[in-house]
């Protein structure tokens, strides 16, 4: 079995932190019944995923990938621009999907008068039972 190199593990320090953030977001999505709270959790989850990708693109001692085409760009160390591109579009798509989710929350509020998931289920099963009663 390979020995665990402690200094190598310390070098990975960002990733466990990002995973903790991610899991807090995931927990909010799963454990909370309030739909708005779920979307907030989803936002936290999304930001941490973005953070993970950006952390992968970071180069120690590097600079932001903005260069001078006539300057000494060959000798400069840049952080990786590719994750930045993918993540900045992901943020804007994220707000669009958040808006879609919140618009469903608004509709649910109008239809059920609540945004708590368990109450919605209760109302659903109550109305299903109510529909059965006249036939029974």
């Amino acid at each position: 079995m390979e020995t665990i190199d402690l200094s190598r593990l310390i070098g990975l320090w960002v990733y466990p932190i990002v995973i903790v953030l991610m899991m807090i977001g995931l927990y909010i999505v799963m454990a909370h019944e309030n739909l708005i709270k779920k979307i907030m959790g989803l936002n936290i989850f999304q930001v941490s995923v973005i953070m993970f990708y950006v952390a992968v693109g970071k180069v120690r001692g590097g600079t932001p990938p903005i260069l001078d085409p006539e300057g000494p760009w060959r000798e400069t160390l840049f952080s990786n621009p590719l994750p930045h591109v993918l993540m900045l579009t992901a943020i804007v798509v994220g707000i669009a999907t958040t808006a879609l989710g919140l618009s469903f929350v608004v509709r649910i509020q109008e239809a059920y008068g609540t945004t708590e998931e368990d109450e919605i289920h209760e109302l659903d099963s109550a109305s299903a039972n109510g529909a059965d009663e006249p036939t029974a």
Partner: peptide, 18 residues
């Protein structure tokens, strides 16, 4: 944090959007 990780464009977007 994104700025510290050299992702200035991402930071910009996150500040405006988030």
């Amino acid at each position: 944090l994104f700025t510290l990780m050299d992702a200035v464009d991402v930071a910009f977007t996150e500040a405006a959007v988030g």
